[in-house]
Design a protein around this nucleic acid. Structure first.
Length: 107
DNA sequence: GCTCTGACTATTC
DNA sequence: CGAATAGCCAGAG
C-alpha cells in the first residue's frame, strides 16, 4: 500500500495495518507496534497524528481500552456508530473499549 | 547527525 | 483509582 506518503517504512506498515482493522474492532498501540516487532507504541500514535486523516485512528486505542488522549469524544461517536463494545468506566472519558470482545488480530 | 517532542506503556506512590 | 516517573521508539526541526 504505497498510496500513503512515505516518511518511512514503519509509518507505511502502521497505516496499512490500521486500515485493515474492520469496523467494530479495535487494536492497541502496543499490539500494532508489536506487529512489526517494535514496541514503538509512541511512534504509532505519532503516525495517527500526522496521517490520522487517512486511517480509522479511532480503531487504535491505548492499553486497557482507553481512547486516544484528547480524542475520547470523537472516538466514542465512531464506536457507537459501528457498534463497538464499550464498557462504562471511572475514567475521565467515562468509558472504555471492551478489548476482550473488540480486540482484533490480523487474520 | 543531534535534540526535542509526542494520539504510549509499565511501575510506583 | 488517579497522579507522577522512567523507559521506549520514530519523526520533525
Amino acid at each position: 500500500m504505497a498510496v500513503f506518503d512515505r516518511p518511512g517504512d514503519y509509518t507505511e506498515q502502521v497505516l496499512a495495518l490500521v486500515a485493515r482493522i474492520p469496523p467494530g474492532r479495535v487494536m492497541t498501540y502496543g499490539d500494532v507496534a508489536w506487529a512489526f516487532g517494535r514496541p514503538g507504541a509512541r511512534a504509532v500514535g505519532m503516525v495517527m497524528r500526522y496521517h490520522g486523516d487517512a486511517v480509522p485512528w479511532w480503531r487504535v486505542i491505548r492499553a486497557g481500552g482507553h481512547p486516544p488522549t484528547c480524542h475520547e469524544e470523537a472516538a466514542r461517536l465512531r464506536y457507537e456508530e459501528e457498534g463497538t463494545p464499550l464498557v462504562p468506566a471511572s475514567t475521565p472519558a467515562g468509558y472504555r473499549v471492551d478489548l476482550k470482545a473488540a480486540g482484533w488480530d490480523p487474520d
